Simulated scan of single mutants.
Amino acid sequence: MSSAPARLRSLLARPGCHLMPCCFDPLSARLVEASGFPVTFASGFSVAAAHGLPDTGLLSYGEMEHAMRRITGSLKAVPCIGDGDTGYGNA
């Protein structure tokens, strides 16, 4: 089996639009995968909302990294695109 980055590159090289439901935690990522979608993504908004927070940069870089590691670690075959969020540089 090829790596997740290789599968993502192959998918994005195909013409057309590609549906990729958003996930926000390991369970939602596994549900996307079980539903047969070839790719998923996680955004700063989705992770913040799952924590009951507005998307105003209240989550730290470490919290976002932890969420992405848990999400990608839960997937077996589907690549996940992670939103880099807003930079974490200032208030």
Results as ranks from 00 to 15, higher is better:
24 F>N: 11
12 L>N: 02
55 D>T: 11
4 A>Y: 03
29 A>V: 12
46 S>N: 12
57 G>M: 04
60 S>F: 11
71 I>F: 07
3 S>Y: 01
20 M>W: 04
70 R>W: 02
18 H>E: 01
84 G>W: 04
82 G>I: 12
12 L>G: 11
33 E>L: 06
39 V>A: 10
56 T>R: 04
91 A>N: 08
34 A>Y: 01
75 L>P: 14
91 A>S: 11
11 L>W: 00
29 A>Q: 09
1 M>D: 14
61 Y>H: 13
7 R>H: 11
65 E>A: 08
62 G>L: 12
37 F>T: 01
54 P>H: 10
43 S>P: 12
49 A>L: 10
76 K>L: 09
28 S>T: 15
68 M>R: 02
7 R>C: 02
84 G>H: 00
48 A>R: 02
35 S>D: 11
26 P>M: 01
5 P>C: 00
20 M>D: 01
29 A>L: 09
60 S>K: 12
5 P>F: 07
35 S>H: 14
85 D>T: 05
9 R>T: 05
60 S>H: 09
18 H>L: 11
24 F>P: 08
82 G>M: 06
54 P>R: 02
73 G>W: 05
17 C>K: 10
67 A>K: 02
60 S>L: 10
7 R>E: 06
70 R>D: 06
79 P>Q: 03
19 L>C: 13
70 R>K: 13
61 Y>F: 15
12 L>E: 05
56 T>P: 00
55 D>Y: 09
3 S>M: 01
78 V>R: 13
1 M>G: 14
43 S>F: 05
78 V>W: 08
41 F>E: 06
18 H>I: 15
2 S>I: 13
88 Y>N: 03
24 F>M: 11
10 S>V: 10
68 M>Y: 15
74 S>T: 04
79 P>R: 02
80 C>A: 15
24 F>D: 06
45 F>H: 14
69 R>F: 09
45 F>Y: 15
81 I>N: 02
3 S>C: 01
31 L>R: 11
39 V>I: 13
73 G>R: 07
71 I>A: 11
50 A>P: 04
91 A>H: 07
1 M>T: 14
1 M>A: 14
56 T>A: 09
72 T>M: 10
56 T>C: 05
11 L>K: 00
58 L>C: 06
2 S>R: 07
21 P>I: 00
12 L>A: 04
31 L>C: 10
71 I>L: 03
22 C>N: 12
47 V>P: 07
91 A>E: 04
35 S>E: 13
18 H>M: 00
19 L>K: 08
74 S>D: 05
67 A>I: 08
24 F>V: 01
87 G>A: 03
